[in-house]
Amino acid sequence: MNICVLIKQVPGSEAQFNVSGDGSWIQETELPYEMNESDNYALEEALQIREQKGAGEVVIVSLGPDRCQKVIREALAKGADRAIHINADAPYNTDPYSIASALANAVKDERFDLVLSGLQSDDLGFGQTGVILGEMLGMTTATLVVGTEVQEGKIKVKRELEAGWFQWQTMDLPASLAIQSGLNTPRYPSLKGIMTAKKKEIKKLNFVDICNVDELQSFAGLSVQHAEKQTEMIEGNIDQIVNRLVDVFKNEIRIN
């Protein structure tokens, strides 16, 4: 079972953003970067599947500038076997379709049984890349995956639906699965893992060389979210506060 894991490096959740002067991109310097949260779960799921099956490779594919080497090494230290780094400089392409097309070209000769990705990235948040890649490679696809069972030539996955519902589905391999956070407990790299990661292969490609389609969409402008709202502070004694809250419920928000 050969598994590809798509890993993205994103600004950490504590990052404060400044938009560049022309609104085209963020100012990237000084931002704290980390592995995208759901990608970490996808990686763990891949490592666990490989451990159950006892054979095969886990290959990391990551797209972004040089700084991505950090999360690639982290993934290799946790147990992935090798990596493909597709170099792209900021302000990079934001279009999931052209990104998926570059990824498809990067892995087309690899014959992966599974492609695992995080459900969506914390930076752009499209949540499309893994699905489009699956479609391009002729794979079955599933998102919001919270459980996996590999079978002969197939994989059975548990998907999260809305409203606390779930569903199992059996899919032909090869398959591309977008993994929901929380389905497993991601491991930490061991010291030995960190040492051996330094010797593992990272193949380098350039985005511009392997993306052969036009962008379907782009960010036309970035701005800081609207300033904080006007807040009405409700004051008084407890009965006055409760009366005003009931009034707001009934007459302003209009709940029944």
Partner: peptide, 20 residues
């Protein structure tokens, strides 16, 4: 019509420009 989505942990808003 011009459409926007949230980006970067919902701290920024991005206009989306469809190339179609």
């Amino acid at each position: 019509p011009v459409f926007s989505k949230q980006a970067f942990n919902a701290k920024l808003i991005a206009e989306l420009n469809p190339n179609s």
